[in-house]
Write a protein that binds this DNA or RNA. Structure first.
Length: 302
DNA sequence: CCCGGATCCTGCTGGC
DNA sequence: TGCCAGCAGGATCCGG
């Protein structure tokens, strides 16, 4: 559920309240987030008594660096994960609390309704390019669990020409390519639809049929949309996405495509349509985001 | 290798 | 009111 802007909003909250804190105790309430029972011991060994030195992110992956531990603590939120900080313990833990970290000041809860998220130690490995791994870290080190994903559109070290070239070598629908974290990371279903609406490109267009300037525009548009979403604190539809302090973001009011089936396009007033592309619900304007097979994908002012 | 679909899980909504 | 199909912000695995 949370995409880059939501994960970044959570990260910023953690930087404020968890960075520099020492973990006094770890409790695993439900095994699935930690996968195997043996991993609980590994998790406790890594985290208990450690001080949080960095809170880093690439795409939708978050990780904590503790002292000089060789492993990072990776936090992936999946579809429904939350990280909730409390200055003092709540009277009752939220339903679906999977892991809680008691800090020298405060409590950090990992809560996950649909259980696709996880909390897992992962060895820090050198980045391919020798550059800092992502937001919130100066180290050229990435957890092994995140080693297969590309940099994200908000990463100043993203190699845009390389992404544009790679996109030109697949015939998959461009929407599917945006969701594939190996091309560019951090984009999920909401921001894929928003990006393609702003870029005026039909989501079913095979990526290799898009001219290079259109592919580049897509990557830059993704950065603009997600940058704006970070400033708004992310997209909240309900209580499932809130920041580390439990507050909603307000980017939902800026959405132009996602979830707007049947409502007038903000550019041309044509009712938006919904279809399934790449197995995901996809929202688009049938007029501005034109043909998937013609030469007009790039669109022009209606 | 590349592509597309199935699958993991819980909870909510809307139609009958 | 109750039931059930369908859907939900992600990522991985597997067969063709």
């Amino acid at each position: 559920m949370p995409e880059l802007p939501e994960v970044e909003t959570i990260r910023l909250g953690l930087v404020e309240h968890v960075l520099g804190r020492t973990v006094e105790d770890v409790v695993v309430h439900s095994g699935r987030a930690v996968r195997k029972l043996a991993d609980i011991a590994t998790l406790v060994d890594l985290v208990a008594g450690g001080t949080v030195r960095e809170i880093a992110r690439r795409g939708k992956f978050l990780w904590l660096v503790l002292d000089d531990a060789p492993d990072a603590l990776v936090l992936h939120l999946g579809m429904s994960g939350q990280l909730l900080f409390h200055t003092s313990p709540p009277p009752e833990l939220p339903r679906h609390t999977a892991v809680s970290l008691r800090l020298d000041r405060g409590l950090l809860l990992f809560v996950d309704q649909r259980t696709f998220g996880y909390v897992h130690p992962s060895p820090l490995l050198p980045t391919d390019d020798g550059l800092p791994a992502g937001a919130g870290t100066s180290r050229p080190e990435l957890p092994a669990l995140a080693a297969h994903i590309a940099r994200d559109p908000l990463d100043p070290h993203l190699d845009v020409p390389a992404v544009v070239a790679r996109m030109g070598r697949t015939s998959s629908a461009v929407k599917r390519v945006l969701l594939d974290q190996r091309f560019v990371s951090g984009i999920g279903n909401i921001y894929a639809d928003e990006t393609l609406w702003h870029a005026r490109i039909h989501p079913a267009t095979p990526a290799n049929l898009l001219p290079p300037d259109a592919r580049e525009r897509i990557v830059r548009t993704a950065a603009e949309v997600m940058g704006a979403a970070v400033l708004a604190g992310g997209t909240s539809f309900d209580a499932l996405y809130v920041n580390a302090m439990g507050e909603s973001g307000y980017f939902a009011r800026e959405l132009r495509a996602y979830g707007r089936t049947g409502t007038p396009c903000a550019r041309c007033a044509t009712p938006l349509v919904r279809e399934v592309i790449g197995g995901r619900s996809t929202h688009r304007c049938p007029r501005c985001q034109i043909s998937a097979t013609g030469a007009q994908w790039i669109g022009s002012d209606p």
